[in-house]
Design a protein around this nucleic acid. Sequence first.
DNA 1: ACCTGAACACCGTTCAAGT
DNA 2: ACCTGAACACCGTTCAAGT
Lengths: 200, 200
Amino acid sequence: MRTLRADARRSREQIVQAAETAFRRYGADASLEAIAKDAGVGSATLHRHFRSRRQLAEAVFQERTEAVAAVADRLKAEREPGPALVHWLRAALEYAVANRGLVMTLLPPSDEDTATKVCGHQILAAAADSLLSAAQAAGAVRADVTVADTLALVNAMSLLAEQDATADVHHLLELAITGIGPSPSGPGSSRPAAGEMPRT
Amino acid sequence: MRTLRADARRSREQIVQAAETAFRRYGADASLEAIAKDAGVGSATLHRHFRSRRQLAEAVFQERTEAVAAVADRLKAEREPGPALVHWLRAALEYAVANRGLVMTLLPPSDEDTATKVCGHQILAAAADSLLSAAQAAGAVRADVTVADTLALVNAMSLLAEQDATADVHHLLELAITGIGPSPSGPGSSRPAAGEMPRT
DNA sequence: ACCTGAACACCGTTCAAGT
DNA sequence: ACCTGAACACCGTTCAAGT
């Protein structure tokens, strides 16, 4: 895979570009055959370069996923541990809903996929791990929350966004973060505002 | 639709039964053609009775969805408003993850579907509405939580369950309910246990 | 009125044949 | 080494023809 002949390299790049457009236009279920045609290659060529729909999606989104992971480092330096995690989760969701087809790469890979390549899931899991550990060490996040939980939360909202355009997934993420318990000023409330989980 | 000739009625019933098996076995994407074949009818017959995959799913799951809605009435009578809503959300999620293909009927219907029939979404929305109003009136749930939010939460977790077998969706729902803020005994915590949102 | 079988337009995967 | 075009097995939708 490292040393690709010039024409093969070009085929691959054209496929990825066509796929990017197709995913944006038609979502995760975009026709692979149409992508191959758009790229000006045969469908067999597409399948040689990308054994699965997911591998193609990984190639399309890898760079931007790494950029989101990089945001974690910045937040970790600039914010308190709790807010850093919260901000990053919001950013990750924003990124996921803005890129149709992306969530495919954020789900835990199946067994065959595991061996092959880097995937969006592991890139973001590493980023989340660092933020979550710090937040939990600072006592800003419950100890029973796992890295898998944080990513799964983003994935659940992303999947919903693809299926239900009316859903306010950002609001739902806030609920998951702050809980749906009574607000501080509500009647009968016994739960204060979550100072560690600021709105902005 | 009310007065169906005997043979048509039998066709319809066989299709629904075959679909129930197929959804359980293959999930929401089960082949409609295979369902028709299993039912011993032509695919055109299936399409006459059910104009869309969703309409077929509605027929398969309607009874059980109504049973879940009925649970809401029982909980409303037996529990305090806050716990009643929480328990019902858990029950709804359990029901959704236990029945592959069901979540299709719980998503808000698209415009064409709206006019046609009762759907799982509106059945559960009515049930959730009653519980949520009471819980909010009692101050047990934040005022900015909508009926759509509660159902969307269940739907998001259901969709995730279908895509990610490793996800602990029940744990995620608990997070959404109680928040991922610091636990009462955690260091630096300023948030007490949510008395209105008991674990059981 | 309701059904069937067939036709249609699509899809992803694979393989033999080319350069 | 890499590609193409074609073949294969599938899918959902629709329609003409039957009873």
